[in-house]
Amino acid sequence: MIEAFLEMMSAERGAALNTLQSYRRDLEDADRFLRARGAGGLHAAQTADLSAYLHGLEAQGFAASSQARRLSALRQFFRFLFAENVRSDDPTGVISSPKKQRGLPRHLSMEAVSRLLETARREALEGKKSPAQARRTARTHAIVEFLYATGLRISELTRLPATILHREEPFFMVKGKGGKERLVPLSDSARHAGQAYRMLLEGDERARQCPFLFPDDSFSGPVARQVLARDLKATGARCGIAAESLSPHVLRHAFATHLLENGADLRVVQQLLGHADISTTQIYTHVMDERLHALVSAHHPLAASGNRQ
């Protein structure tokens, strides 16, 4: 039944490979636990069995977010069994989700991002490099410019087609989670950095055949996310940014945070990030507190102490 569920998620809901692999790991782990408990396997589990499994995760020190993710996989699995008339009930229906403590996203200050951009730009322009080094530094410069200018997820960035550089519009379409498309801004500096990188690839016929803006070294597919993250951290280290403070996702957070700090509307940021629900974007509102406090203090008629009754 796990295999049937995964086939349904792939065929009917278009779940990504990483999502399917995550579901498989979580469901097979629950199945092993329940068989060891004598419950007869996951498909036959009762509410008490699943509660025991989740309590076991908590006892092992799993974070609330990890417990919630596994419960979500179980819920979807049993809804599938119910829809297929394999079961007449949903044993997860009365199980409460673990309370997750949502931490604030890490992000860089505007000054730190400026240092990172300047370092990446300078290293890309430096001479006396091998062709491979020239391509790598140009790619890193383009990656930093693109991440900060667009707020893209790294998975979205690596799948970008090279053809977006041929367009003159300041926006382009990107397909995000769930296959949903959205408009993403492209700054002139990001476009120029991307064009400079692509110019270094023009002499290789394989580059012209590869559709991706950022291909891997063999031009057989997109560059690996881990490669980009490694080069980004190395560049950050050379301008005083600790490795643990920098990642492609941190630049996505910086994109959103700096927009809000400079007066952007939360709904606009939601659309640019590709969040389906505004509640996901609201995690960034902590950066608006000081600005909103100053706004109210300056403009609300009761803000001045002399006006209070």
Rank of each mutant, 00 (worst) to 15 (best):
R115Y: 04
I164H: 09
G263V: 03
S10L: 01
G306I: 15
A229Y: 05
G306P: 00
P91G: 04
R225E: 12
E168D: 12
R121Q: 11
A45G: 08
S114E: 06
R37I: 11
G14M: 13
G176V: 07
V268R: 02
V223T: 09
L50C: 11
E126S: 12
G178C: 01
P215E: 09
T235E: 11
P105H: 10
L74T: 09
R230N: 08
V268F: 00
D216R: 07
T92L: 05
R135K: 09
T163I: 14
P91K: 13
N307G: 12
I154R: 14
E244N: 05
A276S: 10
A142T: 11
L302V: 02
S130Q: 05
T119Q: 08
P248N: 04
T280V: 03
L213Q: 00
G179I: 06
G274C: 14
T47N: 12
E169S: 05
D188Q: 12
K129Y: 08
A112P: 15
M173A: 04
N85R: 15
T280C: 06
L213N: 00
A303V: 08
D49V: 05
R308A: 13
A138N: 10
A298Q: 02
D31T: 08
L260F: 01
E168G: 05
E58I: 07
L302N: 01
S297W: 03
D204I: 06
A30M: 15
L165F: 02
D216G: 08
L6M: 06
A132G: 09
F77P: 04
L251F: 00
I154S: 12
S96R: 13
G41K: 01
S96Q: 15
T137Q: 14
V223L: 13
R122L: 15
I2N: 12
T158S: 06
L272M: 07
A304S: 09
M173I: 05
A303N: 00
R182V: 11
P222N: 06
S51K: 14
L34G: 13
L81K: 07
R122N: 13
A73W: 10
